[in-house]
Design a binder for these strands. Structure first.
Length: 411
RNA sequence: CGGAGCGUAGUUCAGUUGGCUAGAACGCGCGGUUUGGGACCGCGAGGUCAUGGGUUCAAGUCCCGUCGCUCCGACCA
């Protein structure tokens, strides 16, 4: 993409927020705030978000998840059926002009359970897992921390139904494994943390926590093994339950969560199936969430320096930030042809073709944070190659075209 | 929802004990000079000072209400 055509621009006068993700994502033009806790995702931000979503899709598909898209506008009856209409205070409730009540989805058990009830009648129809990536709405008393806690936000939510608790548990573990892979691919180290099951599940749930001071949760973790527990359920616990080592305390942000919902929702919606012996039973259900927009915010919290964002390769808006300097014809022609070559080879390039100063181009490149910066200038042409610098390194080096292409196209 | 702070140009902000013909920087437009770390010069456009009331000869400035944003707390199926 040519930067001269990008309708957004970096804004050096943008307000400095207390949270890094809010400041940098706004300054660099990835998001734009509409109101507290509600953001427009701009072109650069959408490229990142889509990459996050695609990683999640691949891993959900790999464990048999089937993608669907459910509505966000729900009839109030479904929420009354489960008790959540009055029991969940973050539920957005709206009234139509004919005085009919609706809810905006803050999670979708109330839709997915009656949906699957229509298709699952036999033990032969299970296990089944469906997921979606969709905006969720929560009436938070206080939105905060940029895109880490909003009133409208992106989330992947998956729901699974099983004949037996054993089968549920097997899948539950598969999802946990998939989640670990997802966060690794996103560049995040997520700790699997024991936490409360919320108001509709008495069992513990597992939260996927990334250590960051921008997070809202306090967790206790063991640095000798993988034990980790949310302080909300830890009580006075000081030593690791698994190995006895002293627990460390840290702030963390929840990027994912898996719940054992048992038979609550199937029972609420009278969703039963026939087992092999002809008996009517309720399925066992799980739900599994990942905050997609929040993950984007957490990545920024983890990967930045004083000059801007440093996107991990897998989620960067573009692989290459190409900068051409000066009005020299040869520079222009060389830039144009490299830009086209890279695009043809499937390399994502953001080309700063603007007629602006070198300093501004460098500063913007650092702020936006694409992994590889390529400079074409009189100086680079004289060197006989391309000037290449990684965003997370300080030194640039000269590469010949073949070496550059090998580097960019290898994967 | 409780507490605190803030709301002035497209953006970020300044605006003194009330005296305003409301400023700066960035951004934007025109012209020129520049071109390896947010370049420079000149000219220009751009504001019902969030909103409603009140006090006063006079309100961006003081008082009250409302709305909004930020932060702390509570809350966070």
């Amino acid at each position: 993409m040519k930067m001269s055509t990008l309708f957004t621009r970096t804004d050096k006068t943008a307000k400095e927020y207390d949270t890094i993700n809010a400041t940098l994502l706004t300054k660099a033009g990835f998001v734009n705030q509409l109101m507290a806790g509600v953001y427009t995702i701009l072109p650069l931000g959408l490229r990142v978000l889509r990459k996050i979503e695609d990683v999640i899709r691949e891993e959900m598909d790999a464990i048999g998840g089937q993608e669907i898209k459910m509505p966000a506008l729900h009839p109030s009856e479904n929420w009354k059926q489960t008790g959540a209409w009055d029991g969940v205070d973050v539920l957005f409730k709206i009234k139509s002009r004919t005085e009919k009540d609706y809810a905006l989805g803050q999670s979708e058990e109330e839709v997915v359970t009656p949906l699957l009830k229509e298709y699952v009648n036999s033990y032969k129809d299970m296990p089944v897992a469906v997921y979606q990536i969709q905006n969720k709405y929560r009436d938070e008393l206080r939105a905060k921390s940029g895109i880490l806690r909003g009133r409208e936000f992106g989330m992947k939510d998956m729901y699974s139904f099983h004949e037996t608790p054993e089968d549920f548990l097997k899948f539950y573990e598969e999802v946990k494994g998939a989640y670990k892979k997802i966060f690794e691919r996103l560049g995040l180290t997520a700790k699997v943390t024991e936490a409360s099951g919320g108001s509709f599940s008495k069992k513990i749930s597992y939260e996927f926590m990334v250590l960051t001071d921008a997070g809202e949760d306090d967790i206790l973790y063991c640095d000798k093994c993988d034990f980790c527990i949310n302080q909300e359920i830890a009580g006075d616990l000081a030593e690791c339950k698994k190995c006895g080592a002293k627990l460390q305390k840290a702030k963390a942000a929840e990027v994912g969560n898996v719940f054992d919902l048992a038979q609550k929702y199937p029972k609420d919606f009278e969703f039963s199936f026939t087992d092999a012996s002809g008996e009517e039973k309720y399925p066992f259900m799980g739900c599994y969430g990942i905050g997609t927009t929040r993950a984007m915010g957490v990545i920024v919290e983890k990967f930045h320096d004083e000059n801007g964002i440093i996107w991990p390769e897998n989620v960067a808006p573009f692989q290459v930030h190409l900068i051409s300097l000066g009005e020299d014809e040869e520079v222009k022609n060389e830039s144009e042809s490299l830009y086209k070559d890279l695009m043809e080879k499937g390399v994502e390039v953001l080309w700063d073709d603007r007629d602006t100063s070198a300093g501004e181009k460098f500063t913007d490149a650092d702020l936006i944070g694409n992994p590889i910066r390529l400079v074409i200038s009189k100086r680079s042409l004289e060197s006989g190659g391309y000037e290449v610098k990684q965003r997370n390194e300080t030194e640039s080096k000269i590469m010949q075209q073949q070496e550059l292409f090998d580097k960019l196209i290898r994967s």
